[in-house]
């Protein structure tokens, strides 16, 4: 064990080199501390640029202007307009996560076990990589140009089939419109996350089930789906957070006409709409609370679903 630490010529890591020069007895005692030093840069980075900013928001949400504790800010979350915005956000995120997860699962299933040719797979995965990152402003443009009032498909439907999409009550700048747009990056993201799990289903499991008399449906119900459940739950959780925090797509699509939590917070920080500094803290805290609760639900479900994994 001790031979692992050897002095390097360049002295790349002063901490480790120092340990080698230190007397033998103290070297062993120092080892655990030195190991921590190895990931200290990462921990400091994470602390400064991920954890402390978040913690600052959480604490800020409970700090009164005089410096004491207060629940006044958080109480502002329960104003009807804010509640409604949160509720809309949660519903959009949940629908787009569930639908995206389900459709992504089906596409990944068709790709891995549905007999689609191998040649489809690589382009499909690469495209998923593209589409799952094709969020934000360009995506909004793409949908406006396609399904907006003067969009490509809207016009085609009207001119060729005499079908007026917008007469049906469809509106791209509505709840379902937003879900439709979000699905464009949610589905591919689900495909990317679920595909490895589906690849992990071993052929022998299916064959073992089959030779023991199981039908395809029985195999999926009793073996494959339970095995996939943790990965599926993880996908839904990630998709939920992904949609919940999406700001750019929504802003580019709707301006600020649709009131959802991240847009309100964004506008609040920019200072263009509301001028109540404490409300910003409260909304940010509310958003952390929602994603936090979503993840706790996910962790609980997952623990119950994967008793069989170490």
């Amino acid at each position: 064990m001790t031979s692992r630490v050897r002095p390097g010529p360049g002295g790349a890591d002063p901490h480790v080199d120092g340990a080698v020069r230190a007397p033998r007895s103290s070297r062993r005692d120092l080892r655990p501390a030195l190991n921590w030093l190895g990931i200290a840069p990462f921990l400091i980075f994470a602390l400064l640029f991920l954890l402390l900013p978040t913690l600052n928001i959480v604490l800020g949400a409970f700090r009164s202007p005089e410096g004491g504790m207060t629940l006044d800010h958080v109480a502002k979350l329960f104003a009807p307009s804010i509640l409604k915005a949160f509720w809309t956000s949660i519903r959009i995120s949940l629908f787009s996560a569930l639908l995206g997860g389900l459709l992504g699962f089906l596409i990944a299933l068709a790709m891995t076990h549905g007999g689609l040719p191998r040649a489809v797979r690589d382009p499909l995965l690469t495209f998923s990589g593209v589409a799952s990152n094709f969020a934000g402003v360009p995506l909004a443009f793409a949908f406006i140009a396609t399904l907006g009032r003067l969009g490509f498909v809207t016009v085609l439907l009207r001119d060729w089939l005499g079908f007026n999409l917008y007469a049906t009550g469809f509106n791209l700048l509505s709840f379902w419109g937003l879900v439709l747009v979000y699905l464009y990056f949610q589905i591919p993201l689900a495909v990317l996350i679920i595909t490895p799990a589906l690849d992990g289903l071993r052929r022998e499991w299916r064959e073992a089930a089959e030779i023991l008399g199981a039908t395809g449906a029985q195999y999926w119900r009793m073996v494959a789906l339970p095995i996939l459940t943790p990965a599926f739950l993880g996908t839904i959780a990630l998709l939920f957070a992904n949609a919940f925090g999406a700001v750019a797509t929504a802003i580019a699509l709707t301006g600020s006409s649709l009131s959802i939590a991240p847009i309100i917070l964004f506008a609040q920080i920019r200072g263009d709409v509301l001028q109540d500094p404490s409300l910003g803290y409260a909304i940010a805290f509310g958003m952390i609370a929602v994603t936090g609760i979503a993840n706790i639900i996910y962790i609980v479900l997952r623990t119950r679903a994967e008793r069989w994994i170490k």
Binding site: E207, A208, A209, E210, I211, G213, I227, W308
Partner: peptide, 21 residues
């Protein structure tokens, strides 16, 4: 079909269902 043959089989790699006891 395999599920109609009433044959038992043991596979090379451990093909136990990992989600079942």
């Amino acid at each position: 079909r395999p599920n109609q043959r009433n044959i038992g089989m043991v596979f090379q790699a451990y093909a136990l269902f990992p989600n079942l006891t």
